[in-house]
Design a protein around this nucleic acid. Sequence first.
DNA 1: CTTTAAACGGAATCGGATTCCGATTCCGCA
DNA 2: TGCGGAATCGGAATCCGATTCCGTTTAAAG
Lengths: 186, 186
Amino acid sequence: MSRPSRTDAERNRLRVLNVAHELFAERGDEVQMAEVARAAGVGVGTVYRHFPTRQALVGAVAEQRFAKVLSFLEEECPARPDACGAVEALLTRVGEMHEEGRAVSGVIEASFGGMAPRGEVGEALLAMGARLVERGRSDGTLRADVTVADLYMSVGAVAMLSHNEIGDWRRFVEIALDGLRRPYHA
Amino acid sequence: MSRPSRTDAERNRLRVLNVAHELFAERGDEVQMAEVARAAGVGVGTVYRHFPTRQALVGAVAEQRFAKVLSFLEEECPARPDACGAVEALLTRVGEMHEEGRAVSGVIEASFGGMAPRGEVGEALLAMGARLVERGRSDGTLRADVTVADLYMSVGAVAMLSHNEIGDWRRFVEIALDGLRRPYHA
DNA sequence: CTTTAAACGGAATCGGATTCCGATTCCGCA
DNA sequence: TGCGGAATCGGAATCCGATTCCGTTTAAAG
């Protein structure tokens, strides 16, 4: 919440965060705290004051990513003609994000098992998700009993599949989407 | 392949493997090599001769689990009346396995990102999966264009969802299954 | 009952995250 | 503009846990 008043502190915090993101993207889990510090032009102590733990640093990087998803959900999704299309766009976006950024995803997955969003971004995501599901219920393009949790799980599944290299995740988007559209009935 | 000739070696290898499994189940990623050694009643050196790396040990534990899935696939699945039912049983089984054993799954996920089976067990799984998909194609209970990769991805997704606590994975089994049954068509 | 290659135990080593603390800066205030 | 001191810095020192090393012990072939 309360940003520190000293401007250099905030500047350093950002520098560290960005550098960490880049390094993780390049070399994944093998980058060490001292490297991040060096590349950011600060001492290890500084890195640790801003991010008390390596996991905290990774968490911050992860949050940036969730923020991107959130803004997509807020800006692009409403533009889609129907809820189903919006969900498809969402899943695809998440997949693409993890596909490039694969290395970063790996780091996140290794630090936290899985990767559910936390904090206000998490709340906001949940809220937007609920809205999307609601929309689907009313415009009838999603099965009537979908829940945010269903959506959440689908997103998580796509995220996981798109950064591991098991099969064509775009294919899975189709499958999940078909499942979300409506229950099977002969 | 070639089991060592000395019987004590083989006995120790098993002891270590089982103890590791138990400890991982109890306390997850925090158990350390020295503990495993102590609990197994051997020295650290012994643990390392059998499993040259912590990751290797975790990998061996993981393989045991894959072996269970394989035997399920070989024994229970053929008994199901149709391919779709078999897939449902498979997904459910995988989910249950990861739900109890949650801690173990966490350890595996932390050591390897994701968790694709390796070696002969992996091959065998792939083969059985292919057979199942084939069956689905011919009895018509799965959509005509499913692939082993689709099945693989679904299994992976359920595994991931059932050991993280994001939503009701059984629900997701339904969704994925609906997607695997047939493509959407208005 | 030797012989000997293989297995054992566990102290020592190594690598990397985290802590500590004296030296340096910003910021508000006179 | 100049000063006081709290917050920030940097990076050497510490801590912790995985991994290596090597002298000792042991199963099993002849």
